[in-house]
Every structure is written in structure tokens, then in C-alpha cells.
Write a protein that binds this DNA or RNA. Structure first.
Lengths: 206, 206
DNA sequence: GTCTATAAATAGATAGAC
DNA sequence: GTCTATCTATTTATAGAC
């Protein structure tokens, strides 16, 4: 009796294209709960109460499922960035910094971030939708950076790189259990946001 | 014929405590080459040309091997921090910033960083040597931070957190293939160092 | 201290029934 | 579109020989 086997009868629960979307959604849940190491097509299927063969009707192999997850992650994340900027108000600096917090919250709750979206293996698939979603994600971030930092394009690119690295680092440390004092996801997200502010200040005041 | 099976005859090649150290070393190589997802006790054994049962004479299970790797990683990394600080000269700011570059180079070449050292699963082992090595690592970093930033202990703690997050983020992005334009490890290390400088400037000038 | 052999899980993937 | 059954490969871990 494995963890996901407490399944109900499976009569006609998925039809048309529903299982495809359900597989992607269940992949997010699995990633968020158990991390990328525990991810497997079989586990995703079990969690949905379908056979382990069913996913292969919708995705030719594991990597194509991961690419679909990555594409949706990129799309959702770009939206989260825009939402966070809007919620942060009119100050360009705050709009910029808020994306770091949004990133940490997203990775903490959905389990997929830049590492999944830009994974080298998936790049080998040459998935057009994924490449487009990834580019759009970077465009959103670069636009917010440019508005916050009146610096040359080169310096802005470096700033956004630092910003992403810090946010990604905080998200990774939260996931890997680096924080041992019961820090909540929101606490870590606020730290990432603070790092964004500090990086911006350190860049402009240079 | 698997990738590691091109092994030589295995007569009396390891004795006394040699295999233990060799297993740890081979674990680093495997982590650096193929990432944590590809790590397995069996692969490490195969790489050394010993049976897959041999490691279990030295480590009760996979997690204990990982804990030994993590302990050594923490020890080596602390040394790298001190070496990098020394190489950076007398300027406390440069000594501080250099640790980020050292971290990226270490993770890039050895395959293990904060995520391995502070992995939540290994914490459950309550391994004393690992806990001590982890604490010492943080002490080295905090000391360099304190000397570079004349701020309150609370602010210094936040700065070192940002610094670690950025370095860890750059290292993770390098490993996951985020950089697609052929950036070298040294290039990414320099970016991480630059992020450290920017964070320090942003903190002091606040 | 290491080896051979083996057990029990689990994963990726396919064939053919319904 | 999904299921059952199956194949192949891999992993963690143990028992007992040398």
C-alpha cells in the first residue's frame, strides 16, 4: 500500500484533454511536496489514480511532461511578477524588489523555478512554447529592472542577474532545509525582497 | 556494458580505511559531473571498480555516505573561503566579496554546496561531525562579514544571508544550465563576487 | 574487506485489450 | 483514452562465501 494508492475507483474520471492538464497540475503538487528528486511519471499517475501507462498517451516521455510543466511555470511566474509589481505600488524600486519575494513564494508553493524552466536537458528538446515562455519571463523582469535602475543596459543586465541569483538562492535554501528556525515562506520571501532592495541601492549608488 | 564498467581487475586494490575515503572522493566526482539527481551508491561503487555491496561495509546506508560527503564539503569550503580571503588582500570588502566567487568555483568543481551540507534529511541523522563542520563554515563567513560591514549584528546576519543566497543562486544556475552563452565557471564566479560587492555597498550606504 | 548472488522497490516505456 | 500486463534497467540493502 504505497502512499498514493488510497485511490478511488477510476471509472471515466478523465476524458478528452482533461488528463493532460491534470498531469501537469499533479506534477506541480509532487514537486512542491517532495522536490525534483522524488518526481517520477509513475508517481504523478498514481497520485491521480490512473495507470502508470496513461501519461504516455499525452506525453511521449518524461522530459516532455517536464517541459510542459516548465512552460506553465514560466507563464505563471511571469504573471506573478506582474501581480507583485502591481501590488507594490508606484515606486519602481519597490516594484523591482517585490519580484524576488514573488519568486520565493512561487517556488515554495509550486515547486518549480528557474532551474526547471531553464534546465539544460529540456533545452535539448527545442520546445518552442517553452523557449517563448522563458523569453517572456525574462522580458518582464528586465523591464521592471530598467524602470527601477537608470543605468546602462549592461549594468541593468548584471543587476537583474544578481537579483535572480539571490531570489533563486533563497528559494533553494528554503527548499533544502537550510533554515532551521522555523522561518515561514513569507519570511524568506521578505528576505529575498530585501536583498533586491539592497542590490538596487548598491548598484545605483556605485 | 554500463558507463563505469570499463573497470580493471579489482584484486586487493583497497584495504584498511582506504575505500572509505575513495568512496567520498568518488561521490564528489559523480556529483560534479552528473548532479545530485544522478547520485547513487551503486554508481559510486561502479566508478571505483568495487562491488555495489562494498560501500555498505563503510557506511550503513546512502544517507550516511552523503553525510560524510557533506561534512568534508563543509570543511573544504571553509578552507576555500579562508584561502580566497587571503588571496583577496587586505581590503575587508574584497575579502568578503571573494567568498562568493570561491563558493561558485567550489560547487562548480566539487558538486556539493550549502544544499548538501544543510540538507534537511541529513539533519535528521544528528551527525555531530557534520553539525560542527557546518557551524564552523558559518563562523568563517560571519567573521569576514563582520570585518567588512561595520553594522549591527542583526544587519550583518541579514547581509551574510543575502550574500550566501546570491552565491548559491549563481552556483545553482550555472549547474542547471541557465547560462546558455558559454559562460565559464570563472565568469560566473566573478558575477557572484560582484554581487557580494554590490550587497555590501547597498548595506553600508543604507 | 571485498565479492557473488540475491531480494524487494521503483522507474521508464511499450503492446494489446476494452 | 485508459487499463492490464509486461519488459528492462536501476537502486538500496542483505546474506554468506572467500
Amino acid at each position: 500500500m504505497t502512499e498514493e494508492s488510497a485511490g478511488r475507483p477510476t471509472r471515466g474520471r478523465y476524458h478528452h484533454g482533461e488528463l493532460r492538464a491534470a498531469l501537469i497540475e499533479a506534477s506541480f503538487t509532487l514537486l512542491a511536496e517532495s522536490g525534483p528528486a522524488a518526481f517520477s511519471v509513475a508517481r504523478v499517475a498514481r497520485r491521480l489514480g490512473v495507470s502508470t501507462a496513461a501519461p504516455y498517451r499525452h506525453f511521449p516521455d518524461r522530459d516532455h511532461l517536464m517541459a510542459a510543466v516548465a512552460t506553465q511555470a514560466a507563464t505563471e511566474l511571469a504573471q506573478r511578477f506582474e501581480d507583485a509589481a502591481q501590488a507594490a505600488g508606484d515606486d519602481p524600486a519597490e516594484r523591482f524588489a517585490a519580484t524576488a519575494g514573488a519568486y520565493v513564494r512561487f517556488v515554495g508553493s509550486r515547486g518549480a523555478g528557474f532551474d526547471v524552466i531553464y534546465a539544460a536537458d529540456l533545452g535539448d528538446l527545442h520546445d518552442r512554447a517553452l523557449a517563448d515562455a522563458g523569453r517572456h519571463l525574462m522580458d518582464v523582469l528586465l523591464d521592471l529592472t530598467r524602470r527601477a535602475a537608470p543605468v546602462s543596459p549592461e549594468v541593468a543586465l548584471i543587476l537583474v542577474g544578481h537579483h535572480i541569483a539571490a531570489a533563486h538562492g533563497y528559494a533553494g535554501q528554503y527548499a533544502s532545509g537550510f533554515f532551521r528556525r522555523g522561518e515561514t515562506l513569507d519570511t524568506v520571501a521578505d528576505l529575498a525582497t530585501a536583498a533586491g532592495r539592497t542590490l538596487l541601492r548598491g548598484t545605483i549608488d556605485a
